[in-house]
Deep mutational scan, measured.
Amino acid sequence: SGWQYDTQCSLAGVGIEMGDWQEVWDENTGCYYYWNTQTNEVTWELPQYLATQVQGLQHYQP
C-alpha cells in the first residue's frame, strides 16, 4: 500500500481508539513516534492497528 500518514500530525484530535498505543513527540525529528505500552514496541510508522482506523475515517483528508 502506498498510503502514508504524516507523523508530524497528531492523532489527538482525530478521535480514534489508541488501544495499547501512545503517541510520543520526538523533539529531535519534529515527528511523533508510537509506543506500545503492553509490548514496549516502538515504531516510527503508524501501527496497523491505528492506520486501519485512520483510513476508515470519512472526514480524514490526507
Results as ranks from 00 to 15, higher is better:
L57F: 13
W21A: 00
G15N: 08
N28E: 11
Y49R: 03
Q58C: 06
D20A: 06
G13D: 11
S1T: 13
Q8K: 15
E41W: 05
E17Q: 12
Q61H: 07
E41F: 03
Q38A: 10
A12M: 02
Y33I: 03
Q55K: 09
C9V: 15
E45K: 11
Y34E: 01
L46C: 06
G15R: 11
C31S: 13
G30W: 07
Q38F: 05
W35I: 14
G13P: 11
T43A: 10
E45V: 06
N40H: 12
G56R: 13
V24W: 04
Q4L: 05
W3H: 06
G13Y: 02
E17M: 04
G2I: 15
D6W: 03
I16A: 05
Q38H: 12
T7G: 11
C31T: 10
A51R: 11
T52H: 14
G13L: 08
W35F: 14
T52V: 12
T52I: 13
T29Y: 13
E45N: 06
N36Q: 10
C31Q: 12
T37M: 14
Y60E: 14
D6A: 05
N40E: 11
Q58H: 12
N40A: 11
Y33W: 03
N40Q: 11
L46E: 03
Q8S: 15
M18G: 03
D6L: 04
T37C: 14
S1L: 03
T7K: 12
W35C: 15
Q4K: 15
G56K: 13
G56A: 12
G13F: 10
S10V: 01
W25T: 05
P62T: 12
Y60M: 15
D20L: 05
T43M: 06
E45R: 09
E17W: 04
L11K: 04
H59C: 10
E45G: 06
L50D: 00
V14L: 11
N40L: 11
N28V: 03
L46Q: 07
G13C: 10
H59E: 14
N40I: 02
N36H: 07
N36I: 00
T29E: 15
Q58E: 11
Y32R: 01
S1C: 11
Y32V: 01
W3E: 05
Q8Y: 07
V42N: 08
G19R: 01
E17A: 08
L50A: 00
G13W: 02
S10E: 08
E17Y: 00
D6Y: 02
G15M: 06
D26A: 08
P47Y: 00
M18W: 13
L46P: 04
Q8A: 15
G13E: 09
E45L: 08
D6M: 07
Y60I: 15
G15A: 15
T37E: 06
A51D: 05
W3A: 12
Q61M: 09
E23S: 01
T37A: 13
E23N: 00
A12D: 07
W44T: 11
G56T: 13
H59Q: 14
V42F: 09
Y32K: 00
W44D: 04
E23G: 01
Q4P: 02
T7D: 06
E27G: 11
G30T: 13
W35A: 15
C9S: 13
L50Q: 01
H59R: 10
H59V: 09
G56P: 08
A12L: 06
Q38R: 13
Q48G: 12
Y34L: 01
M18C: 03
W35M: 08
L46R: 04
Q48V: 10
S10M: 03
G19D: 05
Q8C: 08
G30E: 11
Y33D: 01
T39V: 00
Q22W: 02
Q53K: 08
Q8I: 04
V54R: 02
Y60D: 15
S1G: 14
E27H: 15
V54W: 06
Q8F: 07
C9H: 09
Q8R: 13
E41G: 04
E17G: 05
T52F: 05
E41R: 09
Q58W: 04
M18R: 02
N28P: 09
W44F: 10
Y5G: 05
L57R: 12
T39P: 00
E17F: 07
C31E: 04
L57S: 11
S10C: 05
Q58I: 03
S10N: 03
Y60V: 14
N28A: 12
N40C: 03
Q55L: 08
G56H: 08
V14Y: 15
I16N: 02
Q4G: 08
Y60T: 14
W21L: 00
Q55T: 08
Y32F: 12
A51S: 08
P47F: 00
C9K: 15
G15I: 02
W35Y: 06
D20P: 07
Q58M: 11
T39G: 05
S10Y: 02
G15K: 11
V14D: 06
N36C: 07
E41C: 04
T7W: 03
A51V: 07
V54P: 01
N36M: 02
C9W: 05
Y60G: 14
L57V: 11
E27L: 04
T43Y: 05
Y49A: 13
L50I: 08
M18I: 07
Q8W: 04
Y34N: 01
Q48D: 13
T29A: 15
V42T: 14
S10D: 03
S10K: 04
Q22I: 07
Q48C: 09
L57G: 09
T29G: 09
D26F: 06
G13K: 10
T52E: 12
Y34F: 08
W3R: 08
V14K: 14
Q22L: 06
G15P: 12
A12F: 04
C9D: 13
Y49P: 09
W25A: 08
V54G: 03
A51Y: 10
Y33S: 08
L11I: 11
Q22S: 09
Q61G: 12
N28K: 14
L46A: 04
G13Q: 08
A51F: 05
N28Q: 05
Q38C: 12
T29Q: 10
V24Q: 14
Y5Q: 05
P62A: 14
W25F: 09
A12R: 10
D26R: 03
Y60R: 14
E27I: 09
D26S: 12
N28G: 14
Y60L: 14
G2S: 15
P62H: 14
E23T: 02
M18S: 02
Y49E: 14
Y32E: 02
G19F: 01
A51N: 07
C31W: 02
N40S: 11
D20Y: 08
C9L: 13
P62F: 10
L50G: 01
Q48N: 11
E17I: 05
V54Y: 06
T52D: 15
T43G: 04
V54K: 02
A12W: 02
V14A: 11
W44V: 10
V14F: 08
